[in-house]
Write a protein that binds this DNA or RNA. Sequence first.
RNA 1: GCUGGCGUAGCUCAGCUGGUAGAGCAACGGUUUCGUAAACCGUAGGUCGUCGGUUCAAAUCCGACCGCUAGCUCCA
Length: 632
Amino acid sequence: MEQEVQIDLEGEIRRFPRGVRAVDLPDRDPEAVAAWIDGQVVDLKRPITKDGALQWLTFDDSSGRLVFRHSSAHLLAQAVKRLWPEAKLGTGPALDDGFYYDIWLPSPLSEADLARIEAEMRRIAAENLSIERLELTREEANQIFSERGEEFKLQIVERIPDGAVISAYRQGDFVDLCAGPHLPATGLIGAVKLTNVSGAYWRGDEKNPMMTRIYGTSFPTEDALNQHLERVEEAKQRDHRKLGPQLDLFSFKEEAPGFTFWHPKGYQLYRTLEEFSRRLQQERGYQEVSTPWIYRAGLWQRSGHWDHYRDNMFLVEREDEVLGVKPMNCPGHALLFKGDIRSYRDLPMRLAEYGPLSRFERSGTLHGLLRVRGFHQDDAHLFVREDQINQEMFGVLDLMDVVYRAFGLPYEVVFSTRPDDYMGDLALWDKAEAELEQVLRDRGLKYQINPKDGAFYGPKLDIAAIDSLGRRWQLATIQLDFQLPENLDLHYVDSEGQLRRPVMIHRAIMGSLERFIGILVEHYGGAFPLWLAPVQARIIPITDQQTSYAEEIRRKLIRHGIRAEVDSRNQKMGYKIREAQLEKIPRMLVVGGRDQENHTVSVRTREQGDLGAKPWPDYLHQLVEEAEMPLA
RNA sequence: GCUGGCGUAGCUCAGCUGGUAGAGCAACGGUUUCGUAAACCGUAGGUCGUCGGUUCAAAUCCGACCGCUAGCUCCA
């Protein structure tokens, strides 16, 4: 057996004694936190026994960062164990921008405790304890963790299959069961911050004990940590729950948890979106309807909602009868479809509705506009012949593309296929799935497949949009449904005079308008593009000599469909500009004596500032053009 | 729903270990009539989330409830 290994270090092949550790190699990157050796992230202290290429991983590599954060989680656990020896450790993984550890504690933690733990973590980091990997037999592992009273760790050991390596990492007197890899020593963790505490069930199961989950983040230096904290603060400023009330768009009141109060400006925004959707859909042959929002339980029983969705419905009881408030429009649209004899020539029939929907969401899950109990969708149901599925799906995907491009939202498609508990005819499923894939290919869309994640009534496409902060939001959903037409006995007459079953396509593009607005507020940071802005132009007279001229301009703008208002308050121009800017109004039209005389407006835009005086009627027409909806 | 945290004027927040509330901004009134991000003076505004308890005395301590929030769970 050879006594040496060949290691490819940045293209240079060098020989070292077998079992050499990366940490001992010459020219080691001083910032390295781990190494990448032949496709595997390993500890710097792991003996190298095979030839291969080695790359240093630092905090700037995502896999290096995960190692760093994972070791930070151990640091947290060690600190907690020092302060509360009776604490029992659960699991503590690294996250994208930090880490957490689930720990069972005898009593709840307070904010002050977090500071204490943080201080202890800094102390341990300063001690610069060496982190060592141990490989254990099952017996050794059981012994170590039962001695320490780590019952949760014992449960994890139990689940490790025979033959797998059981490893643990030791730093000082602290040992944690862990696959690794880890930093070579605690001293590399230069800055830590514990951010919040919450509860989490052991293994995520409500029946298991509740652990305390402590979240934190860590960086090599204080500077990097501070930068990160600033970014978090910025994201917080963009939070729709903060911006919404600040921009006077909407509010929530404790008298109606989960339902939105739309203020005038927010409702304007809402109506603009609805109108945008309406116009796009009208062009594409959709017909808008309005259907009842409360139905007798019998309908929900026939539609299948009673069995599958009742817990999420608001139910009312009157005259010894139970009625359900609709959580979705499909049964209503199906009833409307069924109300007449339909010919194959009537199909596809595309019914759209923006009416109110309500779903009972558990109190703990409500979250601003993103998770509400009362909402409205840009909803539609297409009743189609089997031979029209392809063409209609194509049309829906086309519409979706127009909508998302209008908001500058790139998107990803996930195709969910037949689940195990599917209903209906297997051959029809196969055919539908094949057609959906064909449509995706026809449109040249890249997509991921989520096997067995479809609805029980049909396969579906879920579309996730990526916002300006890089976050993914599941928005549109397009679902084929073979089941509801069956359950509600829908049919049409084909060219031979035979009764046939239509297929239903459920689809929403923006999804819930409430949720979509919440996302848009954060996507734009409240600075909506001109066509969406609730107030598009604010007219700012410099002195009260110009109020009538300002008023005349406002009337013209309004007549041309521009949402404009005059700030006639007794304040200096600079003050009014500042307020308009803070309210993120896209255009400010300053009118002073000179403007009145020359028949101009002095234009200031939210982004570019002062553009100087523009001849008046000309600017009106320019603005009208700039404010057009992006319909194509 | 479960576990933690939070709840003081419209908003942002102060109010130490109990002695019945304070600032800035906003609002309102007046003065000022002003050219691209905050003029000046004044006034008013709160049963401290709700209910109950401890206490001579509760924004402050305790309990329950409501709401929000971080998560967990759920999600046709």
